[in-house]
Amino acid sequence: MSSDDRGPRVTLSDDQWRERLTDTEFQVLRRSATEAPFTGEYNDTTSEGVYRCRACGAELFRSTEKFSSHCGWPSFFSPLAEDRVRYITDTSLPGAPRTEVRCAACDSHLGHVFAGEGYDTPTDLRYCINSISLTLETTGD
């Protein structure tokens, strides 16, 4: 691990990641696969808390920024802080490029962010995040 002003950075080899993650988690988090829609454990979750990166534990999103987009994956209108995620232009599909969202601490694939879809949120953004990329640390009851 290394660190800078944004906190600890997690740098592991593929073999080390494979030891930490299940095969499915590895495919999504380290190989940018996508879980099937409407199958993830957090798609319909309304519990209060903080969503962390499943690979490294970095805090990424709060439940207060989660909203129901009916797209099949958990949706957030903003990350906990901009320095918690990084963005990559994704041209893997034909048509318009998408913006991939990765954990800034360990570079794991989280999902994609979309703008201008007309959702009634403060940012007009939809962070479409794989449930398998997250763990929820609940607060309260």
Rank of each mutant, 00 (worst) to 15 (best):
D4T: 04
E59D: 12
W73N: 01
S47P: 12
S78N: 15
L21A: 08
H112A: 14
M1V: 15
S75D: 03
R84H: 02
L134E: 12
I132C: 08
S75W: 00
W17N: 01
A58Q: 08
R62Q: 13
C53R: 02
N43R: 11
D120W: 11
G111R: 00
Y42I: 01
R62E: 15
Q27Y: 12
T45M: 10
G72L: 01
G116D: 09
T138G: 12
S75E: 05
L80R: 01
K66H: 09
I129T: 07
W17H: 04
S75R: 01
S133N: 05
E65Q: 14
T46H: 11
S3N: 14
D90C: 05
L134H: 05
R126T: 08
T139Q: 12
T91Y: 12
S133W: 00
L136W: 04
A96Y: 12
R52N: 12
E25Y: 02
F38E: 02
Y42F: 04
L60A: 13
A104N: 06
A104I: 04
I129F: 01
P8C: 12
D15T: 07
T39R: 08
H112T: 05
R54V: 11
S131E: 07
S92T: 04
R126F: 06
D23T: 10
I132N: 05
P94W: 10
F67Y: 03
F26Y: 08
D120A: 09
T123M: 07
D83W: 01
S108N: 10
G95Y: 09
T22N: 09
P74C: 07
T45V: 10
S32P: 11
E100Q: 05
M1T: 15
T24R: 14
S47G: 14
T11N: 15
G140E: 11
L110C: 04
A115P: 11
S63L: 02
A58S: 13
K66F: 05
D90Y: 00
H70Y: 12
G116S: 10
E25A: 06
L110V: 03
V28E: 03
L134I: 09
D14M: 10
D90E: 02
F61G: 10
V85A: 07
A36W: 13
G95T: 07
D141A: 15
V50Q: 09
T64H: 02
